[in-house]
Amino acid sequence: MVAVGDTAGRTLGRGTGDMTAGIWTTRLRVAALRFGLWMGSPLRPAKGANTNFVRDAARAWRMSAFARSLAYHRAIARNRQAYLGALWMPLGFVLFAGGISLLWAQIFDRPLNTYLPYVTFGLFVWNLILGSLVDGARAMQESRNLILQSNTPILIYPLTAMLKQSIMAAYNIPFVILVAIAFSPAFDPAMLLALPGLLLVWVLGLAVCITLSILCTYVPDLSELIASGLRFVFFFTPILWLPNTREGLHHIWMWNPFYYVIEVVRAPLSGNHEIAPLAFAVTGALTLIAWLVAVFVYRRFAGAVPTRLGG
């Protein structure tokens, strides 16, 4: 028997003659269009979605109300059923930062009035970094259903991930301010440098989110690698320990980019004016590089994200 399945369409088509007629009419119409005979129609080639960074970023920005709303619902999703609701976000932070400071201050014999603020500020930024990387890595997979519904620019989803992290960080800010006021000797205007520092961390995080969210649709293992790798990085970054503890170990933090990203917020808040300029310089450079990489990755790889998710 002939392989009917392979040729059924063509055989039938030739039999009726309709199919060829239909297609040639269409081709003629398309040809007419190409030569501008289409009654002055403003038809234009549908531009490939998710290939032009500037255009898509502008579109995503116009849809930022959607991103904000989605981010809010995702941020409070986990605690919706709990009696204390969203209060669990700051509570978890307070319990962890407070508890670990008390314990480690005892173990390592440190004065609590400097160690508690140090750990609180460090953990605050670390939570933001950790959340952005982990959420950024799964931003596209998480939003698969939404991406396949409409031609919304996919840049919306890393933006949503960062907005969600901002909301979660905002819940922790009151405790950070409380600690800063309670434990600093006097108010120093230089403490306000933590605000641009935080903004810089956010801008850096957005670039990393864009890169990771796209790459993770190509290499799904990346999100697992990040989640487990960061648990490890936490102990290699001066958050629970001070960077000047042991002379011989300075390589661990000196070459650790996470250290400088944390210091842009922690150094102004804890009045550590020696490291602050270097921290800002390194983080600024990282941000610049991260954005260059993000734009490159976007232009090169973002176009195929919907087919990768749908296929």
Partner: peptide
């Protein structure tokens, strides 16, 4: 406009 054409072109208005 969800999936981009891998070859060819689409025109819309």
């Amino acid at each position: 406009g969800v999936y981009p054409p891998s070859t060819g072109r689409m025109w819309t208005d």
